[in-house]
Design a protein around this nucleic acid. Structure first.
Lengths: 336, 336
DNA sequence: CTTCTTTCCTACAACGTTATAGACTGCGGA
DNA sequence: TCCGCAGTCTATAACGTTGTAGGAAAGAAG
């Protein structure tokens, strides 16, 4: 139904290659020929067929982005930033949701379903370091997140340890010494939880504040509900604390809610800091101090690196590990 | 580099068509032939080229979803639901962000950039009813949202007027009579703001409660900050009210924050209800009563309708207007 | 023993592009 | 006059699939 390059060629009285040349801004075309072609294009409402282009060129102009789920604000904001960064390069983004499930993540890597994508930005949650080999796939892949380090691909991530240390230092600088942590994962070393907990411990150690395991609240997931539950458990143990480090903003917000229910005042009785700098953190009551992990920078870098790999897939370039700049964002929840 | 159907055919000693038949589960193939082909596929790591398939079949298996921005929780949750619904049908989703800008929305409709998509789910924010004609495009399009009614395409939407009336009725049932509204748009009739305000007025009228324009706070956008600002303005006018209807959850949450800052207790002094049932509404302090507009149903219906139009683009079927079921979700912010 | 049907398979022509190789102008220089 | 070269254009062959048409073999029906 739609007009093809052949229809345009016929209407303009030129060869199909000339039409193709006009569409692709090939320089050596006589102005009047070009105009005839453009007129025909206009008249027939011609627009080049992307599938045919992709078939010929081997490129689709589409990047895949795999995240656990968009309902998690962090990933929604990441996706937003990725789409913007891709658009600046004329690329589109196709989003996959893995649910953070290891099997689905592995399946995604193995599956040929993302054939119509030039490369993948992959943010796993269920996979762990021992799955690193699965990242050796036949298409350009850039890894995001903190689940896997030293894998076979480029990796764009945040400075988890340093940023968590800065968050903890911030609380210490306010005179807090009993700092609870919400959202730790039992026994985890790598992964956001493990790394951020490490940063916390580094800060304590440097300040010569003793580490008290009783202050560490564990959760499996990082939703608001988990932060709330963990805080309730912490309160029920009767342990004494004057600050809370939520390993992400949602946990911190959930915890903050429970603290307020229990009658504690923030920041007077308990100071709270989160991690992620979600939009939401600016509008909670009180507003939430947090770490801006450099999400925009991560998105832009990741897209840039992926685009580079797509442009030259066979470059022997070794996998790069790129870390974004972070920033402590001080708000009411840790005000002096 | 990657293996093609020809390589597989050669390795298996069959014609390319037989390979194609195996890949597409064509029934009449001898088991041993089929096995030989599958072995070759396995050995060569063959996977069919999507671009070529799309070129042949005219279908890409990808739906476009255009929303203002994913940073807005409502759209993130909508996108989540759409991706799930699409996946259930074996479809993928490519997301565009329009920023809610009318020009970009119009450009998106006119542009051939979404060529590699079988159809579009379009949720405009900047366009209005007078732009309805622009929706007559050459590809399957399903309209979402409340900006345009009676357009030339299928439209899946929520029962804004009825739901807003139910929200207001809920507040009235709690004995509230001075119900402020946050987020109205000056002079708007169609659009979420206009429709929901209409529902509010309908409820008041039915209850014979006078409508007081002094209770209506206007905002341009529907972010948290706007809800906060609007509430501050409302408070500064000194007008008396015992309940707030936030035209969406984010507005309500922003307003709630300011109310609490001002020392008012929720729900004792002021009851608050929102609209959207964001995940967040379950975890605010207090938890926010709201309207569940049937987001999942909207997503599933929209994908189903679009898939139907894609399957049969020339069916003379008239444009349908489909409305999802809503539900009042009562939480702490309106507890008796 | 035919004839018809079903099963299984193949050759080849699309689908709509872009790349390649080459043809035809003029024009400047030897 | 002839050659080379830049500019402009065309014919045709890919890209990797699936659809069409049809052939050979094997049963089923007459």
């Amino acid at each position: 139904m739609a007009a093809t390059i052949r229809d345009v060629a016929q209407a303009a009285g030129v060869s199909i290659k000339t039409v193709s040349n006009v569409m692709n801004d090939y320089p050596h075309i006589r102005p009047d020929t070009k105009q005839r072609v453009l007129d025909a294009v206009e008249m027939l409402h011609y627009s080049p067929n992307q599938s045919a282009r992709s078939l010929r060129s081997g490129k689709t102009g589409v990047l895949g982005l795999a995240v656990p789920e968009l309902s998690l604000s962090y990933f929604a904001e990441l996706a937003d930033a990725v789409i913007r960064a891709a658009e600046a390069r004329g690329l589109k983004v196709l989003i996959e949701q893995t649910g953070g499930d290891r099997d689905r993540e592995l399946e995604l890597l193995a599956s040929p379903r993302l054939q119509l994508t030039d490369g993948l930005l992959f943010s796993p949650l269920g996979m762990a370091n021992e799955d690193a080999e699965s990242l050796s796939v036949g298409f350009p892949l850039v890894l995001l997140g903190e689940r896997i380090f030293g894998g076979p691909t480029d990796h764009v991530t945040m400075r988890n340890v340093e940023a968590a240390r800065a968050a903890t230092d911030h609380l210490l600088s306010k005179g807090r010494r009993r700092i609870a942590v919400v959202g730790a994962h039992e026994g985890e070393v790598i992964g956001s939880a493990g790394l951020r907990l490490q940063g916390y411990r580094n800060a304590l150690e440097a300040a010569e504040v003793p580490y008290d395991p009783a202050l560490i609240a564990h959760t499996t997931l990082w939703h608001r509900a988990n932060g709330a539950t963990a805080m309730r458990e912490l309160l029920s143990t009767g342990v004494d604390f004057d600050a809370v480090f939520g390993l992400n903003d949602t946990l911190a917000l959930g915890a903050m809610r429970v603290l307020q229910e229990s009658g504690r005042r923030i920041p007077r009785d308990v100071a709270v800091i989160g991690f992620d700098d979600l939009d939401e953190a600016q509008y909670s009551l009180p507003t939430l101090s947090t770490i801006d992990p450099g999400r925009t920078e991560i998105a832009e870098t990741a897209v840039a690196v992926l685009a580079e790999r797509i442009a030259d897939p066979r470059s022997g370039l070794a996998p790069r590990e790129i870390q974004a700049q972070f920033r402590v964002v001080e708000r009411e929840s840790t005000a002096s």
